[in-house]
Design a protein around this nucleic acid. Structure first.
Lengths: 408, 408
DNA sequence: CGAGATTTGTTGTATGGATGAACTTATCCC
DNA sequence: GGGATAAGTTCATCCATACAACAAATCTCG
């Protein structure tokens, strides 16, 4: 009845998750691969317990044992544990305004396969574009060992699932895209259309999510070295997407629609997108909106007044809108992604100024403005990581031969 | 090292919490008091397990056994379980602009003691006001059995802790108030000052929180009958406070400062408080700001154009600001509290109009605007409930004679 | 009015997973 | 080569829950 189901022997699953996370986290934060004993002391579990759990994880390909490295100390050398490559992977697909693509990432965060096709999808036909994406996904998966690729001596890769990043509002339970203004799509049965052209996505119904949310997830992953990060991610593209990360987790809200700030009203009654969107910045700088952002960056670096003024105006509006977000969700760190990352050298200072002036708590916790470290296709990576995160959250369902080993 | 500590036999604590919550929740949502068997089937735990856990909770005064009621069905009559009165209680104190007070609430949500003193605290001296509050708290606690009150045959009430609601930004770890514009207080060592005049608060350092957050908590408690509620709570007073409730839990953010929307910029460059705050509304209606909100309500009901225009202007600005919040946190339900609740008949429609127009997801999830059900001193109740909530979250530390019973 | 039905609550016994203390293995140091 | 040291494993034990049988308390029907 309540949200908390009762547990019994499911305590094992919990500890399994703790151990797995400990190993993967160490790998992701750049810490040296821990041994079973390290995991035991870090988690507080007994060495015997950790050993048993690790053995099951290794047998299922969720954890890899590395070669013992010659240690400097006395004692039996430890077996380093790390994230395994090529055992379990997830598909991260994306449809965006100017490209579509797929990335397949494994637990070690290695990109096993990547396919990106550029093209202008404004006002495109959903069925056509999604058919193309479905074929691309199947093609990418076909390159994996065990899924059609003739790779001798390679163990087959298990697929954990798939995700799809979209630049708009999705209904993740129905698998539909409700609204993507910049694609010109509305109420599209994305999952259904993809299932037609892709046997992979038919078998693994994709997790639909907003592009900014998934890009923020990838960004959070890159920042874990300094501890669980919390920040507001702004993804500047043709539209403006946003996402909120709390302690390393995406805060999606009830339906996954949180972080929408492109439609915030700014001081003069227009929406943020109308002031700080890519087209608006280019127009204000007197540039062609088809040209993209590079000419703007060149002009600003050359010191052209119109370009600089356009950037400052956009940044000031962006800062004011972000100040509202910071005041509402109490997360003082901002990360500029997408186009904004490219323009960060000119945006950062005015955004920070606006934040400091308008955030009520600024005197006690100084806001920061940082530049995204994720690449161009961060959302694809983030989507794959989101799927892998589900595995890590509940590893027990991904164990092979759960009890067969115990039969003597 | 990680945020998730390892558990072992602490599975028992978890189930203890599940059982306790099941009993208290049923009582709070108006469901009939469940029996041990009901709890077992609702949680999925075995009857024997539930029985053992309930016995310990009853022995510690965290659950009460009611008299068996004559049932209609065959079978042994069930022992109804309910929240106990007068065994464990929490102190909810509040300093606000026009009053200060204390409420002591027990697990059954009965108000055991209440003290409220009205007075204007704008620009007051923190030390003086807090000394008065401290004395008030000690006086209120002194009226409880076992703490000075001579109540024969009454078992002593255990105090779970205390909380303090403040109309501003608090540092809950340091126990200080950072900023309360409408009190004119800044960087006040609230916990330290209270400890001087109150032995109760010296023993139970109060949990500091924003007034709107705690009022929202009380509101969430009242709305649990329909399932875990999610809403944005706006508390209109001299200032404007806000809080976000997600699945019945207050979303406080990193430092508990989330929900701050009084300083949102609205269309004409002013902050929301300057447009929709109580003083602003009264001024726009041509009324004296000292008179309070009642004259405004009377004028609006009489159909005076200035009053109606003032309310519509405030509501429109409020709606636009709330639309930003709804877009950012994806919670489409708004609850009007404080002064706004009193004026709701005039505010509701224009707020809803503004929300529907500006919330991106409105076509799919229609926003709603509701009126707060909590009373005038909702924050005091909410504060006490917050403290009791900590007990419910971890009941094991509140069990009496944890293992002594097991000694034969 | 009594026997069976029915449901609640309790009392065992069994089981699964974690624990901690040995024990084995593998290295370094002298 | 022997002792020290640390990693990993084996094994007896413990603890909370599950399951089944039982006792208790009521209703129903003949």
């Amino acid at each position: 009845m309540r949200s908390t189901p009762a547990r019994q022997g499911s305590l094992r699953e919990h500890n399994l998750g703790i151990v797995l996370r400990e190993v993967l986290e160490a790998a992701a934060t750049g810490a040296p691969p821990p041994s079973r004993a390290d995991v035991a002391s870090a988690t507080g579990l007994a060495r015997a317990t950790v050993s048993a759990l690790v053995d099951r994880l290794v047998a299922s390909g969720l954890v890899a044992e590395l070669e013992p490295v010659p240690t400097l100390r006395a004692g039996r050398p430890a077996v380093p544990l790390a994230a395994p490559s090529g055992t379990l992977a997830a598909v991260g697909a994306e449809v965006n305004v100017d490209y579509l693509g797929v990335r397949i990432v494994d637990l070690a965060r290695s990109v096993l396969v990547e396919r990106v096709v550029h093209g202008d999808h404004r006002g495109s036909d959903p069925a056509t574009v999604l058919a193309e994406l479905g074929a691309l996904v199947d093609d990418a998966v076909g390159a994996l060992p065990g899924h059609g690729a003739d790779v001798p001596d390679a163990r087959p890769v298990r697929l954990a699932g798939a995700s799809l990043a979209l630049p708009g509002l999705v209904d993740r339970t129905a698998g539909t895209l409700l609204l993507a203004p910049n694609l010109g799509w509305r109420e599209v049965d994305v999952a259904g259309l993809l299932a037609r052209s892709s046997s992979v996505l038919r078998e693994h119904p994709p997790l639909l999510a907003n592009e900014a949310d998934l890009a923020a997830r990838a960004e959070a992953d890159l920042r874990r070295a300094d501890g669980p990060p919390s920040f507001v991610y702004v993804s500047g593209e043709i539209g403006i997407g946003g996402a909120i990360v709390l302690d390393g987790q995406i805060f999606g809200g009830r339906h996954g629609w949180a972080g929408e700030l492109g439609h915030t009203l700014v001081a003069d009654g227009r929406t943020l997108e109308q002031v700080a969107g890519q087209d608006a910045m280019l127009r204000a700088a007197g540039l062609d909106r088809q040209a993209g952002v590079e000419p703007l960056l060149r002009a600003a670096r050359a010191g052209e007044p119109d370009a600089l003024a356009a950037l400052v105006a956009a940044a000031t509006a962006l800062g004011a809108a972000l100040a509202n977000v910071v005041n509402v969700v109490d997360v003082g760190h901002v990360v500029l992604g997408g186009t904004y990352a490219r323009l960060a050298e000119h945006l950062r200072a005015p955004v920070l100024t606006a934040l400091s002036a308008r955030v009520l708590a600024a005197p006690w916790v100084q806001p920061t403005v940082d530049v995204a470290r994720g690449g161009d296709v961060a959302a694809m990576t983030g989507g794959a990581l989101a799927v892998l995160g589900q595995v890590v959250a509940d590893p027990s369902s991904w164990l092979v031969e759960p009890e067969t080993v115990a039969v003597r």
